[in-house]
């Protein structure tokens, strides 16, 4: 198989295990986002793929060749660091040409490639500027161009956009994704911003305390989270405890949920329901009973906080479907079974 394969990768620092038995295949040309809370081992995993750290167990394969112990400079990869690590003593053009110069590419060819890359990142004519004189977004793009100069087999980015302001970050996300699709390069991005991951990735890999919790397409991760951690970490969700009786009928918040199929043998668990799938109705008529505690009108969406069965449930609706409720009002909550994800508690 062409592409990257991680096989049972483990990394221990002394007695602390930063990455636990991680296996992942990244087919050629796909865009993968490593997503997870701070300290979950994303950077450590990325550094092992780059060869900057050696795993204490497992193997890394690139296009079927074992590269676990190949030194970094022989791996043909491009990496963008969180600090960008642009060389302060070189100009923009020299920074981008660095990997070419190291490989002994001729001056003429270097210049041609630099011009090509500069126009790709919309910075034509900046070749002779010192890197210190660039804005944050420009430096970002120079770091990306520098990493791509040799057309690497693998493109790695560790929180590449975290230093940018929100607007620029969103624009760069789209730009980065389009660039990756144009070049068809296998790309792995570390981020702890789930919106960023959803924007760019073919596959989102959710990690927690050194382990992969789920690796799937963004929509799949959102719609079918594998466990409560993933459900909670990706977007907003309502985690509602349920019990199932002997006939497989689920009860939650004191009412049965009609039509929900609970896998056999599961007598209790957690339902993950996205706020946009929570519908508020008039009380009674078999709906779960709740009371509105707070309404947050954000303009684009309206969040209604409802207390039901001692739990806070959030419903999100669009302005055109604004629920006609006020704080303190009794309401009914309707969950449709196909939007409820049954998880083990």
């Amino acid at each position: 198989m062409s592409g990257l394969a991680l096989q049972n990768i483990t990394k221990e620092f002394g007695t602390f295990t930063a990455v636990k038995n991680v296996s992942l295949t990244v087919p050629h040309g796909t865009f993968v986002c490593l997503l997870g809370p701070s300290g979950c081992g994303k950077t450590t995993l990325m550094r092992m793929i780059a060869g900057l750290d050696l795993p204490t167990g497992g193997a890394i394969k690139l296009d079927d060749a074992d590269i676990t112990r190949v030194p970094t400079h022989k791996r043909d990869l491009g990496m963008v660091f969180q600090s960008l690590a642009l060389f302060p003593h070189l100009t923009v053009g020299e920074n981008i040409a660095y990997s070419l110069r190291i490989r002994g590419v001729g001056k003429e060819d270097q210049k041609k490639r630099v011009d090509e890359l500069l126009s790709m990142i919309h910075l034509s004519g900046y070749a002779d500027r010192p890197v210190a004189k660039l804005s944050g977004g420009q430096r970002q793009r120079v770091a990306i161009a520098r990493a791509l100069a040799i057309s690497p087999k693998l493109f790695l980015l560790d929180e590449p956009l975290s230093a940018l302001d929100a607007k620029l970050r969103e624009a760069m996300q789209v730009e980065l994704r389009q660039l990756q699709q144009r070049l068809g390069i296998t790309t792995i991005v570390v981020t702890h911003d789930q919106r960023e991951a959803m924007t760019m990735a073919d596959t989102v890999v959710v990690m927690n305390s050194g382990e992969i919790r789920q690796a799937a397409a963004p929509v799949e991760i959102y719609r079918r989270p594998a466990d409560t951690f993933v459900a909670d970490f990706i977007g907003m969700t309502n985690l509602i405890d349920f019990t199932a009786d002997s006939t497989g009928r689920a009860h939650a918040l004191g009412s049965p949920i009609e039509g929900l199929a609970v896998p056999g043998g599961l007598s209790r668990g957690v339902l993950s329901v996205r706020p946009e799938d929570v519908h508020l109705t008039a009380p009674g008529h078999g709906a779960m009973a709740g009371r509105v505690t707070f309404v947050r009108d954000l303009g684009g969406t309206i969040e209604t906080f409802v207390e039901a069965g001692g739990k806070q449930i959030v419903a999100v609706s669009m302005p055109h479907a604004r629920p006609d409720v006020t704080v303190g009002q009794d309401v009914g909550i309707k969950l449709s079974p196909d939007t409820c994800v049954v998880l083990k508690s």
């Binding site: 030194p71 970094t72 400079h73 600090s83 690590a85 190291i102 990493a147 040799i150």
Partner: peptide
């Protein structure tokens, strides 16, 4: 910055 040399290594420098 130690990432400067790491960056150089990822770019192909021993």
């Amino acid at each position: 910055d130690p990432t400067l040399t790491e960056a150089a290594r990822t770019l192909g420098a021993s």
